[in-house]
Amino acid sequence: MIQIGVDFGGTKIEAAALDAAGQYVVRTRIPNPGSYDAAIRDVRDLIAAVERDAGATGTIGIGTPGSVDPRSGLMRNANSTYLNGRTFRYDLEHAIGRELRIANDANCMALSEAVDGAAVGARTAFAVIIGTGVGGGLVVDGQIVEGANGIGGEWGHVPLPWMTAEEFPGPACWCGQAGCLDMLISGTGLRKDYAARGGEGLDCPAIVAAVREADPLAVAALDAYVSRLGRAMAMIVNIVDPDVFVVAGGMSNVTEIYPALPDIVRAHVFGGVWEGRIVPAQWGDASGVRGAARLWGR
């Protein structure tokens, strides 16, 4: 038996089949078609192609942006906005002709890393997604914690804790609130902070390159970014106290963010004691598709 995972991204849809040992049997991707009916058709055909190439039928897990409302069954908060308000899971099951499981893509990433990635052996793992936006996922004892309303782990839309006077009230967020982590510890947040300090309109890789050249504006922007990320992690420690934070997304590749984070976390947690780990995701961008496949267990 194989396990099939589908990672429904904003620009691409990736599918992979894993064997019992977690090795890839098939891995492929297609562009996101940009419309609902086409997405249902393309995912159906993608799964059929994976099973044909693998020579086996498998369980099916789907990792999506946003989440399914557990009461209505409707998708919500997806950046592929044509999914929102639609019965995506039901329509896919009808098109494919069998049951599937679905979870938020950040939760899939957390599950993947807990099963056979950087969080193996941890009882509690919190996934930190820091790319264009900010996402999170929580796994406890090998199980995703979605919460009663399906929004567990959505730390991107809580305000930055322990704001300084200069930071308060924080930038307006697309969700309607202000000071959200999505605006401050994403790659987008770093870029905007650098520009606000008088820097040129650089993207994140260019800002990091400038840090490595000791550009003072870039160094100040990255220092502020790391401080905010550490404070945000400390808030999670005070609520969940994970054994490990697993970090993914474009900013996870910036090695300069890791050395200072443990001390910042300890400076803000209750009692000042914390001995957890902060590590980059072992599977990187593949964690989403692998975690989707793992929604059926091992």
Rank of each mutant, 00 (worst) to 15 (best):
A260G: 01
D53F: 02
V26H: 05
R294S: 13
Q3I: 01
A286M: 14
I185G: 00
R76M: 11
T188I: 10
H94P: 00
T164H: 08
H94F: 01
N77T: 04
V289R: 07
F88M: 08
G34P: 06
V115P: 00
E146V: 11
G61D: 01
G61R: 01
L46K: 07
G170R: 00
G131N: 12
G5L: 11
G276F: 07
R290E: 09
T59S: 15
P31T: 11
P216S: 14
G61I: 06
V120C: 10
G97K: 02
P70Y: 03
G272T: 05
Y36V: 12
M163H: 01
G22R: 06
G61F: 04
V128I: 15
L229T: 05
F168T: 14
A54E: 05
G271L: 15
A38D: 14
L160G: 02
G272L: 11
G187H: 09
D105E: 09
T81M: 13
I257W: 01
D37I: 04
V226N: 04
E113N: 13
L160R: 04
Y24E: 13
R123P: 01
G156P: 02
P171T: 00
L217F: 03
M251E: 08
V269T: 11
I96E: 03
G63R: 03
T57M: 10
G10N: 08
A260M: 03
G199H: 11
A292F: 05
V158G: 00
R290K: 14
G150D: 07
A209I: 11
A218D: 06
I60H: 01
P31F: 04
P33Y: 10
C204H: 01
A196Q: 12
P161M: 09
V139I: 05
A281K: 02
V158C: 02
M251S: 13
I239K: 04
M1S: 14
D243L: 12
A232T: 09
G85A: 09
V289H: 12
A48K: 12
L138F: 05
A103M: 08
N79P: 06
A54T: 07
V139Q: 01
P259R: 09
A114I: 07
V50F: 04
V43L: 14
D285H: 10
A286F: 10
G176M: 02
N77F: 11
V128F: 05
G176D: 03
T59A: 08
V120D: 06
G249S: 07
H94E: 13
E213A: 15
R71L: 13
D91Y: 05
D69N: 15
Q177C: 00
D105A: 08
L229G: 01
M1T: 14
M183W: 00
D91R: 08
D7S: 06
A110S: 10
D241P: 06
G63F: 01
L229K: 04
P216M: 14
T81P: 03
